[in-house]
């Protein structure tokens, strides 16, 4: 059971990683990167690394997303690739 959940999370992780790099809107890319970080946090918990899991949830999905949003609001959302 845990292995199927693990495989589903890994599949979503790869999709989110590719989508965060390919989407043509920086705000969408930052949101997808936050989703990627949160999925990675679920993966840590399923691997038994709970301390890494909650640190990733706060720092990866929380603080990093906030920093990206702040930077994008001060610059531009447009990107060429």
């Amino acid at each position: 059971m845990i292995q199927e959940i693990n495989a589903a999370i890994l599949l979503l992780l790869m999709v989110c990683a590719v989508a965060a790099l390919q989407v043509r809107d920086l705000m969408g890319a930052a949101i997808l990167f936050g989703a990627y970080s949160f999925l990675m946090c679920l993966q840590w918990v399923s691997l038994g690394a709970v301390d890494v899991g909650f640190t990733e949830a706060t720092i990866g999905a929380g603080v990093s997303s906030a920093l990206f949003f702040a930077a994008i609001f001060r610059t531009t959302r447009r990107t060429k690739d």
């Binding site: 990683a17 965060a20 790099l21 920086l26 890319a29 930052a30 990167f33 990627y36 970080s37 990866g60 990093s64 990206f68 930077a71 994008i72 610059t75 990107t79 060429k80 690739d81």
Partner: peptide, 11 residues
């Protein structure tokens, strides 16, 4: 794009 590069670094 520089922000895309930073996202790649995080990944």
């Amino acid at each position: 794009n520089l922000v895309k590069k930073i996202i790649g670094l995080g990944i």
